[in-house]
Write a protein that binds this DNA or RNA. Structure first.
Length: 359
DNA sequence: AAGACGTGGGC
DNA sequence: TGCCCAAGTCT
């Protein structure tokens, strides 16, 4: 039994693309088909809502309008333009990949799946999105929307959280994608998922392809897609301190270039390990050894919780003073509140700063 | 394959 | 409040 038996591919393409031509949103990355802008938008849109991305995209393109300008930009500036968007490795990978395109491809984004998919941060979805939208190549671009929409239309009950399932959807898309307009076909599927075929309470009565939809016919649209639940985030106790010197400058530290919040700046902190001695003593000992400074840590004045996708920071926030000299380095600096604006802080540490200024 | 990797919004 | 999500990729 083939899922596509009795499925009218030509009529489906027509109904879907006609709807998209009529109803698509005006979005800044739809102004033209510049492969670079398509690329930037696709990276920003990974796991991120359109409304969140719009201002970031406009600002990013203002600052880095071309491959060349981004390739030549300093990482500090590039990270700053991403501040608050999350998944920061996206922009570090984009930066590295754009440099590669500048050097290896003369500033032209390559137009084959083989070459595009080798670029850092460009996986199967983004490869298909760039190829179809910027170059009109009929390549699948299977994201969460496409899996949700297709699982309903074809009544597919495989778990879309499994990596293997995405491959199966790619195989199906290869069979039904419009060869004449793969760009609109792929975008229409995603637009439909964003506007009509939404996760909860899909607006089937407004759907341009409901006559093609098996889940709608069977009344099971709310049961699809099947998606296994993610593990709950793990709570972690942490102590952080806003340290001032005699000039009221604040001590900040640059995180390592790998892992969580890589290369972002933060206030000195560490994970609380045992109950053997107080959080304050642990923090003090850690900072003295890690940064080779002497401090007088005061009292905790607030607590801040920050929830990531996979963990929760429960941060006890202290204030304190630095005794004597600080030897600054590439990863340790003393800055005024004004100067701090140029550094990229994760939202959790932006909140620590606010709590300090408001205390 | 499954976990790491951010954040803000909706209900 | 708490949970799920939103145009995924890397290891």
């Amino acid at each position: 039994m083939n899922k596509l038996d009795h499925f009218n591919i030509d009529q489906f393409q027509l109904d879907l693309i006609s709807w998209f031509e009529q109803e698509q949103r005006d979005l800044p990355w739809r102004m033209d088909k510049d492969p670079y802008k398509v690329w930037v938008s696709e990276i920003m849109l990974q796991q991120t809502r359109v409304d969140t991305v719009i201002p970031y995209f406009n600002n990013f393109i203002d600052q880095f309008p071309t491959i060349e300008t981004l390739a030549e930009a300093e990482e500090e500036k590039v990270l700053k333009a991403w501040e608050g968007l999350g998944y920061y490795s996206r922009v570090r990978n984009l930066h590295a990949a754009v440099k590669e395109v500048a050097e290896k491809y003369g500033g032209q984004v390559p137009n084959t799946a083989k070459e595009i998919s080798k670029l850092k941060g460009v996986g199967p979805y983004t490869t298909g999105a760039i190829l179809s939208i910027a170059y009109g190549v009929p390549e699948p671009a299977v994201d969460g929307n496409v899996m949700r929409v297709l699982s309903r239309i074809l009544s597919i009950w495989d778990d879309i959280a499994k990596p293997k399932t995405r491959q199966q959807f790619e195989d199906i898309i290869r069979e039904i994608i419009s060869k004449e307009n793969p760009s609109f076909f792929n975008q229409a599927l995603m637009e439909l998922g964003a506007l009509i075929c939404i996760p909860a309470n899909p607006a089937c009565l407004l759907c341009p392809v409901r006559n093609h939809c098996r889940a709608f016919a069977e009344g099971v649209q709310k049961e699809l897609p099947v998606k296994s639940k993610k593990k709950a985030p793990v709570p972690l106790s942490m102590a952080a301190v806003v340290l001032q010197n005699e000039d009221k400058k604040l001590l900040i530290h640059k995180r390592p270039d790998k892992g969580l919040l890589a290369n972002l700046w933060e206030f000195p902190n560490h994970e609380s390990i045992s109950e053997l001695y107080t959080q304050k003593e642990q923090l003090s000992d850690f900072i003295n050894q890690e940064f080779k400074i002497q401090t007088k840590i005061g009292e905790a004045y607030t607590t801040i919780q920050h929830i990531f996708s996979h963990l929760i920071w429960n941060i006890t926030v202290f204030e304190g003073e630095i005794i004597g000299e600080v030897i600054e380095s590439d990863s340790l600096k003393l800055v005024t509140v004004e100067e701090l604006r140029q550094f990229t802080l994760p939202v959790s540490h932006q909140n620590i700063l606010k709590s300090f200024l408001d205390r």
